[in-house]
Amino acid sequence: MKVTLTNFDKAFENRIRLQIMSVLVANESYDFNSLKELLDVTDGNLASHLKALEKEEYITVNKSFLGRKPNTRYMASKTGMAAFKAHLQALENLIKQQKL
């Protein structure tokens, strides 16, 4: 069954990107390694999805060092929060459409 895609955000078409955004909306910030563990993805895979979200300016990146280890933390930006909300709304609308 196909349905129309209004307000559907292309950036969240990928499940991993959607999950990254979910984590960042629910938490103040999250670091790379914890994200990797939580989502069970490879370094490269996660990095490329984070890059994509960063390019959309949905997330902000904060690089720092914990001792000698690099510690990269990610946060959802205002744009990102709004986009995520709009996307959820779009999903909800799709479900409603199908019930009619």
């Binding site: 499940r15 959607l18 979910s22 629910a26 938490n27």
Partner: peptide
């Protein structure tokens, strides 16, 4: 987009939010 995909998306958002905070 298939209906099942939407439900999968929503349930994955739910579980990942739970698991990331709890």
């Amino acid at each position: 987009m298939k209906q099942q995909d939407i439900y999968d998306d929503i349930s994955s958002i739910r579980t990942i939010m739970e698991r990331s905070t709890r």
